[in-house]
Nucleic acid binder design. Structure first.
Lengths: 220, 220
DNA sequence: CTTGTGTCAATTGTCGACAATAATCAATTT
DNA sequence: AAATTGATTATTGTCGACAATTGACACAAG
């Protein structure tokens, strides 16, 4: 009947704001994050800021060294390669699990999300396209039914988003991106495990190579 | 010339002690962890205890709900299944990467670790056997060369260790466990990707099924 | 006996303060 | 001029304190 009242939860709010600031590029890689400055900006004490930073550290978005403080993580092209490489492994595995248990309804949701990619290729912003693409892949992972895997995937997503933001553009033509999801859906529909594996490996592998390449070209 | 002086780093020390206490069964699943009690035991204030608990939460060893505090995570058999399932995916992927880049020296280290399993099957404690087995698999992941993957693997290891401790015994004859590593090494030596994948899937799959079964039998 | 209400103790979330450490920069020496 | 030393400042690590919230318990009402 009633909706839950919004819980203040300073730590979460602070963490989210920092995440967005990093993803939007307002906070640059390597930038120092002093607790005092942040706490003043948020109008809180240092304690919740510290906890938020620790949380973000566990997600890999910031790094810290003892007695020196926190810094926005500087992604190297090697880091990005590792992240995408790991994503390939996890997503293939999740898809493998999804293959065995996906329902018609869930498949329909994936199909709809893929259709959305075509729409956005016509009239969407880059940010919308990235988000829609990410949503598709996250749904696939979720349908694998492994909660622990999904948690790791979400952590990776934060890092990928940070990396992509730095690049500032898509690595490919949005129409092409939309189309490359078709083999994935097809293999899923046909319960063809090998094809599904290959489709994902190719699809994400292309993204990995392009993102790493663009990142290197930027001089990282 | 000089050896490094021991860094205090309260948070790390506290976290490690709690990890061990959980892994050893001194802290039981579902048990409440009040900050005040812990800080008194450690002789510190609540601040570093809080941070240690948050760290452990990110590793999945404890859970927290706002305003209610921290509790030792209660693993369900579903959780354990998810964890092992994820481990299969990650380790197969890591092995896949290792296949392409492993050096003779690294292979030798794996061989030596496998030999150690045979030794310990004769005269080692259960704890030693578990640790040696885990070390073998961690080495394999490390040789994949993906730092991000290894970090996730280490987080998973903490949870697996907690689960195994709860069970309190090995899921199989230690000789058998030692032997089942042979196909993995063989596939690695022959650079046979498919065989390697299957060997790992089988090897860890057996562990998963047995661990989950034992866990269920205990009434979880 | 069950249900609901009010009170109280325990615990968390947050805060400001202080000491220890690291970075910065000027002064001194080679 | 370059390098080392020393003083200064900024920042973190840690602490104890307080207010807000939760859960437990006793008590009253039906």
């Amino acid at each position: 009947m009633f909706s839950a009242l919004e819980t203040t939860d300073l730590v979460q709010q602070i963490a989210r704001q920092i995440i967005n600031a990093v993803a939007d590029g307002q906070l640059k890689p390597g930038e120092r994050l002093t607790e005092l400055r942040l706490s003043k900006e948020f109008g809180t004490s240092r304690a919740p800021v510290r906890e938020a930073l620790r949380l973000l550290e566990s997600q890999g978005l910031v790094v810290s060294s003892p007695r020196r403080g926190f810094f926005v993580r500087t992604l190297t092209s090697d880091d990005l390669r590792d992240i995408y490489e790991l994503r390939i492994g996890m997503e293939i595995h999740a898809a493998d699990l999804a293959l065995q248990r996906i329902s018609d309804r869930e498949f329909g949701l994936l199909r709809a999300q893929a259709d959305k990619l075509y729409e956005l290729a016509e009239e969407g912003s880059i940010g919308e396209q990235i988000f829609a693409d990410f949503t598709f892949h996250r749904m696939l992972c979720a349908f694998g039914g492994n909660a622990r895997l999904l948690k790791v995937y979400d952590d990776l997503a934060v890092e990928m988003r940070a990396g992509i933001t730095l690049i500032g553009k898509l690595y490919d033509d949005p129409h092409k991106i939309a189309e490359t999801h078709e083999p994935i859906l097809e293999a899923l529909k046909n319960k063809d495990r090998a094809k599904l594996r290959e489709a994902l490996r190719y699809h994400i592998g292309v993204a990995r190579d392009e993102v790493v390449k663009l990142f290197k070209d930027m001089g990282a």
